[in-house]
Write a protein that binds this DNA or RNA. Structure first.
Length: 274
DNA sequence: ACATTGACCTGGGAGC
DNA sequence: TGCTCCCAGGTCAATG
């Protein structure tokens, strides 16, 4: 479900009531997520104070004195802040219960998400270490990306969804960024000109920033932690718009499949290279 | 090292 | 109404 803007929206929604708060207890109803939820969470989290709530790529990081709770929302996960007495419903797999009478509830029908623990510096964690720079930081620039794509023969759409090259961009924003940059999604990495690449980097930053400002994209059931939807869906130019007129040139938007993922583009604004 | 495919899950909608 | 099939916002692991 969530790409970077939805994860960032979640972070902002939970920070006021989690950062600086003391954990009373963690209740795990379903241990099987993407990976088994480690027992260390039950051992270490009670009585710990959440020192910070940060984000790295699509991971949420809740730091304590003993270690860091790593949360990934997968395809269908969300976090809600609720009064501690609120009865759990279907797919409410984990509660992080605070001493102040509220809980952070993890809901994830497909269970592709993750709750993990590390007592090492977070940048050493095997899932975090290989990640590309934060897309909204200055470190994500042409000097980073150009050498990485130089010898790549995969479609650029696939490449910008690869965490080791670009983080935070999932299927929605990959489609949107390529449209904004005027690049055909099938263009191979090594076929992009430096000018196109600079444009793509700029548009990735732009589309992610704007989506964060709008509280993310709500397609099915994404809700911010206080239960409100995101408002970016109405700003999507190509995603989910097969057959609808391009917002720039009125050409019907086309849908194809690249790397087993639905891909939307304007055949006029995003010309294929020959 | 890189490219491609399968795997993990559930729910919703289309079509019959 | 109910069945089957397909699709879905992620990404790791296995395979060539």
């Amino acid at each position: 479900m969530p790409e970077l803007p939805e994860v960032e929206t979640t972070r902002r929604g939970i920070i006021a009531q989690t950062e600086g708060s003391q954990v009373k207890q963690i209740q795990i109803r379903h241990h099987q997520l993407r990976w088994p939820v480690p027992k260390e969470l039950e051992q270490h989290l009670p009585n710990q104070v959440i020192l910070s709530v940060t984000r790295r790529a699509k991971y949420l990081l809740l730091a304590t004195q003993k270690g860091t709770l790593i949360i990934h929302l997968g395809m269908s996960g969300n976090l809600r802040l609720l009064p501690a007495q609120t009865p759990a419903q279907k797919h409410d797999h984990i509660d992080l219960i605070f001493t102040h009478g509220w809980l952070l509830r993890y809901h994830d029908p497909r269970r592709f998400g993750a709750w993990l623990w590390t007592d090492q510096p977070i940048e050493h964690h095997p899932l975090i270490k290989p990640l590309a720079p934060e897309p909204l930081s200055d470190a994500f620039n042409l000097d980073w990306l150009a050498p990485k794509l130089k010898n790549r023969r995969s479609p650029i759409k696939t490449l910008i969804m690869n965490n080791h090259l670009v983080v935070g961009v999932g299927n929605i924003y990959a489609n949107e960024a390529l449209f904004l940059a005027g690049i055909h999604p099938k263009t191979l990495g090594n076929q992009l000109t430096e000018k196109q690449l600079a444009q793509l980097i700029q548009q990735i930053k732009q589309v992610l920033s704007r989506a964060i400002e709008q509280g993310g994209t709500t397609l099915k059931d994404f809700l911010t932690p206080d239960g409100k939807p995101g408002y970016f869906e109405q700003a999507l130019a190509v995603y989910g718009r097969e057959g609808a007129p391009c917002l720039v040139c009125q050409t019907p938007i086309e849908k194809i499949v690249i790397g087993q993922r639905a891909t939307f583009f304007c055949p006029n604004c995003q010309k294929a290279v020959h």
